[in-house]
Amino acid sequence: MQRVNMIMAESPGLITICLLGYLLSAECTVFLDHENANKILNRPKRYNSGKLEEFVQGNLERECMEEKCSFEEAREVFENTERTTEFWKQYVDGDQCESNPCLNGGSCKDDINSYECWCPFGFEGKNCELDVTCNIKNGRCEQFCKNSADNKVVCSCTEGYRLAENQKSCEPAVPFPCGRVSVSQTSKLTRAETVFPDVDYVNSTEAETILDNITQSTQSFNDFTRVVGGEDAKPGQFPWQVVLNGKVDAFCGGSIVNEKWIVTAAHCVETGVKITVVAGEHNIEETEHTEQKRNVIRIIPHHNYNAAINKYNHDIALLELDEPLVLNSYVTPICIADKEYTNIFLKFGSGYVSGWGRVFHKGRSALVLQYLRVPLVDRATCLRSTKFTIYNNMFCAGFHEGGRDSCQGDSGGPHVTEVEGTSFLTGIISWGEECAMKGKYGIYTKVSRYVNWIKEKTKLT
């Protein structure tokens, strides 16, 4: 034993070699072989497995989906700052455009905790909710729209109204504003409101030439003092309507412009014939205590009207009353817009006519005020429907199939267009061939041609 100890002390290297040989010859039971080890760690190889990531292109799944990435790591994937920024906006807080917040056709661009709407022409605001041009839906104005110097929408209202708090709607500024039905039992019968379409306001006024200088022999019209197929109006439903009495009662109609003036057809009036105007009328054979009678003290036909040349060209006249009318729910003026808007309103496509005229061709006159909704007829169809001249200051309205029309005794009465609950004068009943005849239409004086003249002559002093 002493000898062994001496050998170990003198030859430590020998001992180490012996131990190493023993270990190498022993069977290893701690580690699995290569094949079995792979069965336990069965993990798919990654895209760049075996390579240094710093030297390969980034992978979106590896960089940002398996674990949260930084902007720089995302930049490695896209290799483009702009594309990385677009991805980053949604990656950080989701897609803010998912709810489609942009209105009126706006395009949404996502941002971090926010979004941006790219608005089409005519709109602005956070969600493109603000109209900035009158060309689109009248700028959301209830009545009139004008573009300011910086191309912003400025709404306005006709006389007797003021802008509401929203700067879009119009509200009454006087007790009985024009064009409004205020009798409670008839307010439910107000005709369907007309909503502004998209309009090209630059070209809204037709490029028409008034044929002022045409000389033409007097034409022989049949029954051209021209509501057939209409309905009984309720008291106060058309408070701007008046009836004219002269040699015979209810020979023509008219509309209240203001307390002192009536507008009617020029062919209705004769110099030297006494005319009485009755406002607030409903049943011409009954006294309903809503009527107001006034005498006409002055007749002003349009300066281009000449019955000797043509009885229905420039067929418009103004009547001055001896005493002002007292405005109330049964006696209310009709609204008159400017030339541009009167023309736009007419193009809405349908209007209402009213009167006490004959209820059928050569038949009896109506006792109760009649009204009828009539569609506008395109000019080409209008011209083809008659052998008589249709001037540019006239328009056609009615039904091709016949059966409904204005008729004798309705002449001078109103053709009105309702705009968001307020009625505007767009025409004056003038003439036609018979009444409600198939293929024939009622012919009306186009008020847009005469609004400046009306307003100039009827100013209240």
Rank of each mutant, 00 (worst) to 15 (best):
G21D: 03
F31I: 15
G421Q: 10
E10C: 15
H267C: 03
V277F: 00
P235D: 04
K457P: 01
N151L: 10
L20T: 02
D111E: 05
A250V: 08
V92G: 15
K146P: 01
K440E: 15
V419M: 10
S423G: 11
K152Q: 10
Y391L: 11
F121Y: 13
V353G: 02
K137V: 12
S99I: 08
V174K: 08
N295M: 03
C117I: 00
A164G: 10
V202C: 05
D33M: 10
A164T: 09
Q219T: 09
I15K: 06
V227E: 12
N306M: 06
E76M: 13
C134M: 03
N343H: 09
T417G: 01
I17P: 00
R43Q: 13
N166K: 02
Y450N: 01
L52T: 15
E320F: 01
N48W: 09
N295F: 03
E165H: 12
K440I: 03
F395Q: 01
L244G: 01
W356I: 11
A192Q: 08
L130C: 07
T417R: 01
K146N: 08
L20W: 07
R83D: 10
C108T: 00
V374T: 06
W356T: 05
Y450Q: 00
G246R: 00
H303V: 07
H303W: 08
F345Y: 15
Q237A: 07
V451C: 08
L189P: 12
E401P: 11
E54Y: 06
P175I: 06
K347T: 13
R191Y: 10
R191F: 10
V277Y: 00
D150S: 11
I428E: 01
D93T: 15
E456F: 08
P177W: 01
S220W: 07
G125C: 01
L23C: 06
E193D: 12
S49L: 11
T133A: 15
W88T: 15
T194F: 12
G412M: 14
E420C: 06
K168L: 10
H34L: 05
A192I: 09
V183K: 08
D110K: 15
K109S: 06
T461I: 08
L369T: 14
P239L: 01
D200T: 09
K109D: 06
V199R: 11
L24W: 08
I316M: 04
N48V: 06
N166D: 09
S99H: 15
I316H: 00
S182V: 10
H282D: 03
V273R: 02
E79Q: 15
G403S: 12
T190Y: 07
Y312T: 03
C28Y: 01
A192C: 04
L19V: 10
V263R: 00
W431E: 11
I40S: 05
V416G: 05
R379G: 06
I334S: 01
H289S: 11
T271Q: 04
T461Y: 15
F176I: 09
G402M: 09
E124F: 13
H302Q: 03
N166W: 00
A192T: 11
I214H: 08
N203S: 07
K339I: 07
K347F: 05
G13N: 11
R191L: 12
N313S: 11
C128E: 03
H282Y: 11
I7H: 14
F31Q: 15
L23A: 04
K152C: 05
D315Y: 01
L321T: 02
E72T: 10
A233K: 05
L244H: 02
E66D: 06
Q96C: 06
E98N: 14
P324Y: 03
S411K: 12
V419G: 00
N113L: 08
G412D: 03
Q216N: 08
H400S: 11
E116A: 13
N138F: 04
V56W: 02
P235M: 08
T422A: 05
K39T: 10
K152R: 13
K274T: 03
N113P: 06
G280R: 02
Q167S: 12
C252R: 00
K446E: 06
N5G: 13
E116I: 05
N213P: 11
P120N: 14
T194Q: 11
R75G: 15
K293Y: 13
E129W: 02
P197A: 09
E259Q: 05
V154R: 09
A366F: 10
V353K: 05
E340L: 11
D95Q: 14
E285L: 11
K168Y: 14
K89T: 08
E61A: 09
Y115Q: 04
W261L: 01
E86G: 15
N138R: 13
Q370D: 03
Y341N: 15
V92S: 14
F121I: 05
E320G: 03
I299W: 07
G363V: 07
G94W: 06
P44R: 04
E270F: 03
K137G: 14
P120C: 04
E259D: 06
G355Q: 13
E10P: 14
A164I: 05
A26S: 09
H415I: 03
T332M: 07
K339N: 10
A233E: 04
D338A: 07
S99F: 13
E171T: 08
E281Y: 08
C155E: 00
E434W: 10
P235Y: 07
N36F: 09
T81H: 12
G160M: 02
C155L: 00
E86A: 15
N295C: 02
V243Q: 07
D249L: 02
G125P: 02
L244N: 01
K440T: 14
Y115E: 03
S255V: 11
F87W: 15
T29Y: 13
N203R: 07
C157F: 00
V419I: 15
W356L: 11
F221R: 09
C178Y: 00
V326F: 09
V296E: 01
V30Q: 15
C141S: 00
T332L: 09
S107I: 03
M437T: 12
K89F: 05
S217I: 11
F121S: 14
Q185I: 10
T287W: 11
G413A: 14
A207I: 08
T209E: 12
C170K: 01
H302L: 01
D93K: 10
K347G: 12
E401W: 14
E418K: 09
T389D: 11
Y22W: 13
L103A: 04
P44I: 12
Y352R: 05
E286Y: 08
V278D: 03
V227R: 12
P12T: 13
N38I: 10
K168G: 05
D198R: 11
P235E: 07
L460P: 13
T158S: 08
C108A: 00
A233G: 06
G125V: 01
N5V: 12
R162C: 04
H289W: 11
N127V: 08
S169D: 10
Q96W: 12
P44S: 13
V269W: 03
C145P: 00
G229V: 09
E53V: 08
L163G: 01
L244Q: 00
C117N: 02
G229K: 10
N213L: 06
S204M: 12
S411F: 08
P177Y: 01
E420T: 13
P333A: 06
R180N: 01
Y441K: 03
T386P: 04
I112R: 15
C117H: 02
N245V: 04
K274A: 05
D110I: 05
Q90N: 15
E401C: 05
P177H: 02
G254F: 01
F71I: 14
E82Q: 15
F348S: 13
R191H: 11
D110V: 07
R43H: 08
E323Q: 11
N151E: 10
T194M: 12
D198Q: 13
F123P: 03
V4R: 12
I262M: 01
Y305M: 02
M437K: 11
A233Q: 06
L163M: 05
I262G: 00
V174R: 10
N328F: 01
S354L: 12
N328Q: 02
I299V: 07
E208I: 13
V181N: 09
L376F: 11
G105M: 10
E142T: 09
F55L: 15
V227H: 06
Y47P: 10
Q167R: 05
G363N: 08
C155I: 01
Q143F: 03
T225G: 10
R43E: 11
V257E: 00
E456W: 06
E129G: 09
F251D: 03
Y330G: 04
C407W: 12
N147D: 10
Q2F: 09
G421T: 06
G432Y: 10
Y450M: 01
Q2E: 08
G105R: 07
T133L: 08
L163N: 03
E82H: 10
